[in-house]
Design a protein around this nucleic acid. Structure first.
Lengths: 389, 389
DNA sequence: GCTTGTTGTTTTGAAAGCGAAATAATAGAC
DNA sequence: GTCTATTATTTCGCTTTCAAAACAACAAGC
């Protein structure tokens, strides 16, 4: 990995970023990884230690030669808050400077909530997790399209009035720190990159399956946003015979989102399929019931999940042909089902890859759980952090 | 656009690259575009002029202030050769230092050719177009997969023994200049970027429709190659009801490549559809006949083309949702049909884009014609050129 | 004509970062 | 224990690049 910053402050912050990626490295290792002279790294590290952002660890090793002095982030340096919300719930986390989680919190979002009431909930969540420590930055991940440069959330259909919401401006009225806005699938991708399954992976796609389906595309270690921030909208891919959106053909989101899966389960049960689930007529299944049922091997649930996974696998197989990423991460509540959910995808992807494809991309499940999006949002703030001189 | 080179030579070469992108700019404009101090640009430009790579143009303008001294590439500085080959033909071009074409040449490739005889043809083509001028670099674009780092062509099914061909090594035996190898669709993408429809466009996809179908993905101004150089293989996307490669469903390449289109035309004609084409039973149509027939409005040809364009449009529509590129370029012999071929794609892509998509990507036809791949190959050599100090 | 405003280029001193050499700290050999 | 090999860090002089100021070349206004 190479980065050549223009001003000194930028070098300091990329030093910190490298340390985040892998703590406990020495000055020389840092210099090698960053393609910068050891002397320069020494200079900067000393300053960062003086400023209390880094600290030296133990010097230890069995090799020959002078043992390296390991460096680590000073957790005391300050903390960051990340917020993520979705159709039905809002999560917030506070992490210290070394990205350890200090505090977490979830709130539910109701169908009756409007843009204003959601903003209030975001405000409250930040206040609640931030405590009275020194706050260095806030990241907010929201569903739907965003303008990350201006800090405006453009549109999300499931919350009333959620259109051109100047979220960063609204939050800055209360919190006087840098605030960053991002789409939540992309946040989840960043979370994987920074402390999830994709640490050190430069090219990957994070497929988020929640109420909707979206992809966060990371290329050369950086999020790819596309024109008008619209990259990753694979939930809208039409599937089926003509794929042309004609009547009767569904989008991926209509086939394989959590929302769709819960509806399909209810439908199949209503049609009389055998299941251990207790369902109320006309109501979709509840996710809290479906996950344990899947783990217990409920045949109906597994069948629906397998079908959804196959659809996803076909889409992932196509993305693989187009982009050939190193890795695919599956995020969202279904990820915790592990290979029960992932194996059908792996099969399909392997089948769609051309024969000379030495090996198809690794398909892995996110391990970050419910707080992935919030962690990613915090990661954005962390990532952008630049020490004052 | 920003680039921050490490050593002086790298800055010189990126200066030259910027000048290629837009000639006739002044030192100050260059400095602004490259995010480098004007004083530094002055220093380097002076040296490049002393070395005969650049020269000053006229100073002219109507604005206030001191008129800028425009800079241009010195065509005399040397020249580059690009070679591209495909299932049936091999093209080579020589360009001068300012990328003006000096010489071009085509040779046909026979079904009986083997890897060795093709290498001979490449050698001959280079010798023929290079003449006795000072050669600065050679780019070679080949079909199939390549390892650009090692300079080895990995595999191509339509030429016998084309497997792990150490092309760069073989050519260097004869030509003692830097030699670069790339896949030919990616070369075409680079040609568009450097002197085609995508000058100044940072994010685009070039879809090449020839014997096969592939995509060159350019992100942030750079080719994206993917793991094992396998990105862009959209020809293998399965289409149709399940998209799972089951019997009876076709790949995009089987539906919309030039090869497939010619076969479909012959098939439809054999089934008795009305056409102005003269066809021999059991033989595919000839491209040289089909293009004029399409321009003349032959109904059968137009119908087949429209169907292929619709398939392509669906795939492009999906790429658009995933990547949201600024622009899509269609390259290959069918590109010259213009909107007769492109309009069906545009329709489908617009239909597949989500409603809030302000505007779908521009879909344009390559204007580089038969020599697009060869020009791209030359562009790679040009691009990599680094002045001796 | 002369002055003023504007923009492009060059000069000049300072800063950032490099590379080589010096120094430091350890393990293992003796 | 001392010496040597090895690796990490720091020192120091030098190159690259910057930023600000000086200088140059023009248009427009007087």
């Amino acid at each position: 990995m190479k980065m050549k910053p223009k001003v000194a402050a930028a070098l300091e912050s990329s030093l910190i970023q490298h340390l985040r990626l892998r703590e406990g490295v020495s000055r020389v290792e840092l210099a090698r990884a960053m393609d910068v002279a050891p002397s320069t790294v020494g200079l900067y590290v000393d300053r960062l230690i003086r400023n209390g952002l880094l600290r030296e660890g133990t010097k230890a090793r069995g090799q020959a030669g002078r043992p390296p002095i390991t460096l680590e982030l000073n957790p005391e340096a300050g903390h960051f808050v990340g917020v993520d919300f979705e159709a039905r719930q809002l999560s917030a986390v506070a992490v210290d400077f070394s990205q350890q989680i200090l505090e977490r919190r979830q709130t539910s979002i109701r169908a009756s909530d409007t843009a204003d009431s959601v903003i209030d909930k975001i405000n409250d969540a930040i206040t609640a997790v931030a405590g009275r420590r020194s706050l260095l930055g806030i990241g907010v991940a929201v569903p739907g399209s965003v303008d990350d440069k201006r800090g405006v959330a453009l549109h999300y259909q499931f919350i009333r009035n959620w259109r051109n919401v100047p979220l960063v401006r609204r939050l800055r009225e209360r919190f006087n720190v840098p605030i960053y806005l991002e789409n939540n699938i992309r946040s989840m991708a960043l979370a994987e990159r920074w402390f999830g399954q994709c640490m050190g992976v430069d090219d990957f796609v994070c497929v988020g399956i929640r109420s909707g389906i979206g992809a966060g595309v990371v290329i050369k270690g950086e999020l790819y946003r596309g024109k008008n921030n619209l990259a990753g909208e694979i939930g809208g891919w039409y599937r089926g015979c003509d794929g042309d959106g004609a009547e009767g053909f569904a989008t991926l989101e209509q086939q394989a989102s959590v929302r769709a899966i819960l509806a399909q389960i209810a439908e199949a049960a209503a049609a009389g399929d055998e299941t251990t689930l207790k369902l109320r007529a006309g109501q979709p299944a509840a996710l809290e019931d479906v996950l344990p049922a899947a783990r217990a091997g409920d045949p109906l649930v597994l069948r629906v999940l397998r079908r959804a996974a196959t659809s996803l696998g076909q889409v992932i197989g196509q993305m693989n042909l187009l982009l050939s990423p190193e890795q695919i991460v599956i995020a969202g509540p279904l990820a915790e089902l592990g290979s029960a959910f992932l194996d059908p995808m792996r099969e399909v992807v392997a089948r769609l890859a051309p024969p000379l494809h030495a090996e198809p991309p690794r398909i892995v499940a996110s391990q970050l759980g419910d707080y992935g999006g919030a962690l990613g949002a915090a990661a954005i703030a962390v990532h952008q952090f630049m020490p004052a001189r």
